[in-house]
């Protein structure tokens, strides 16, 4: 079946099987491998992308369900060479160790900050409940999100 999806601001058309999951369309058909596949059971959050601005687990969404939607992946966050404040602060605060969960963490945090410009640490921890860091480096991730929110308020 043919589907049309906006990916990082660009309108794209794909011919896919109905059973194609959004995460595989993004990685295999669109070549955007920044979105990671890990648990494949909507637990870990590594595959999180934004669909119409809302964080979703792309391993549990059919590509067909995203027909007509605007999808944002980690590749679409920076403005040219200018990193997004979240990317900058994950770097600055050492909010990653192996980096596998980072794209999902950043996109979830993106929605979190969009709906709450000044989240408390507790609100951040509640917000990223659906993203697991296998290195267990949560403290620096929370610090990075908090710092990014502050940078975006300035």
């Amino acid at each position: 079946m043919e589907i049309n999806i906006g990916i990082n601001g660009e309108s794209r058309t794909f011919d896919v099987e109905p059973r194609t999951l959004l995460v595989h369309l993004l990685r295999d058909d669109a070549g955007l491998t920044g979105t990671h596949v890990a648990c494949e059971t909507s637990i870990c959050g590594a595959c999180t992308v934004l669909v119409d601005g809302k964080a979703v687990k792309s391993c549990t969404v059919l590509a067909a369900q995203a027909q007509g939607c605007e999808v944002t992946t980690i590749e679409g966050l920076a403005d040219g060479d200018q990193l997004h404040p979240l990317q900058e602060q994950f770097w600055e605060k050492h909010g990653l160790q192996c980096g596998f969960c980072t794209p999902g963490m950043i996109l979830t945090a993106n929605q979190l900050i969009a709906s709450n410009a000044d989240p408390t640490d507790e609100e951040i921890r509640h917000g990223i409940e659906g993203n697991i860091c296998r290195c267990t480096g949560y403290q620096n991730i929370v610090d990075a999100i908090s710092a990014a929110a502050a940078q975006m308020r300035d």
Binding site: S42, G45, K54, A55, V56, V61, Q111, G127, E129, G130
Partner: peptide, 9 residues
């Protein structure tokens, strides 16, 4: 229910 992403969908 679940987490932020699950509640969104």
């Amino acid at each position: 229910i679940g987490d932020l992403q699950v509640r969104n969908r």
